[in-house]
Amino acid sequence: MTAPARSYLTRVTAALPRRIDRTLVGCVAALSVTGLVLVWAATAGSDDPAEATGFLERQLVHLFIGGTVCLGVASVDYRLPRAYAPVLFVLAAVGLGLVLTPLGAVINGSRSWVVIGGFQVQPGEVAKLALILGVAMLLGEPRDGEFRPTGRDVLFSLAVLAVPLGLIMAQPDLGTGMVLGSVYLAMLALSGAPARWIGGLVACGVAGAFCVWWFGLLKAYQIARFTSFVDPTSDPQGTGYNANQAQIAVGSGGLSGSGLFQGEHTSGQFVPEQHTDFIFTVAGEELGFIGGTVILAMLATVVWRVLRVAVGCEEPYGRLVCVGVATWLCFQTFINIGMTLGIMPITGLPLPFVSYGGTATIANLTAIGLVLGIHARERGYV
Rank of each mutant, 00 (worst) to 15 (best):
V99I: 08
E378L: 07
V73E: 03
T239I: 14
V212L: 13
A130F: 03
T233E: 13
A326C: 11
G26M: 06
L296H: 11
V282N: 00
L307K: 07
I198G: 02
H265I: 03
L341K: 05
V202I: 15
G373H: 00
P350M: 04
V183Y: 05
R196K: 12
T239N: 14
I248C: 09
G118D: 08
R308Q: 14
C70D: 11
I346K: 02
R225P: 15
G145T: 09
R6P: 14
G145P: 07
P102G: 02
Q120P: 12
G369C: 04
E273S: 06
F55N: 01
P352N: 01
R377V: 08
G251T: 11
M344A: 12
G72V: 03
G117P: 11
V271T: 01
Y84F: 15
V106E: 15
G166W: 08
K219I: 03
G263I: 04
V306L: 08
G342I: 04
V73R: 05
V135M: 06
L24Q: 07
G369V: 09
M1T: 13
L71N: 12
A5L: 15
S157Y: 02
T23W: 13
L370C: 05
D173S: 04
G192N: 04
R6T: 14
S256Q: 12
L161G: 12
F353Q: 00
G151D: 08
I374M: 05
G348V: 02
W113N: 01
G67R: 00
V106H: 13
A29I: 12
V303T: 08
A85P: 05
A249Y: 00
R143L: 12
S157L: 05
V230K: 04
A92R: 05
L161R: 05
Q222G: 13
G284I: 05
I223N: 14
G109D: 10
W304L: 13
R79M: 08
A83V: 15
P194R: 04
L190M: 15
A195P: 13
P164M: 00
G175C: 11
L320T: 10
M298V: 07
L218R: 07
V303G: 05
V37N: 03
V250I: 10
R79S: 11
R377T: 06
S46K: 01
S157D: 06
L63K: 04
Q222W: 02
R11S: 14
L296Q: 09
M339P: 10
L372A: 09
S75L: 07
L372N: 08
L71M: 15
L36S: 15
T301F: 10
A30L: 15
A246E: 01
P142D: 03
L103W: 09
Q222N: 12
C322D: 02
I132Q: 06
T359R: 01
G292F: 00
W328Y: 08
W304S: 11
L351G: 00
R111W: 09
L180A: 06
P49S: 01
L370N: 02
A29Y: 07
A105I: 14
E264R: 13
W214C: 13
L329I: 07
A326D: 07
T366Q: 09
T176D: 06
I368F: 00
Q59K: 00
A360W: 03
V154Y: 00
V183M: 11
S46L: 11
G324H: 01
L133Y: 03
V37K: 00
E315V: 10
F270P: 04
Y381W: 14
G95R: 01
T276A: 05
L180D: 10
G288C: 03
N336F: 02
R111N: 11
S46A: 11
V90A: 10
A220W: 09
G259Q: 01
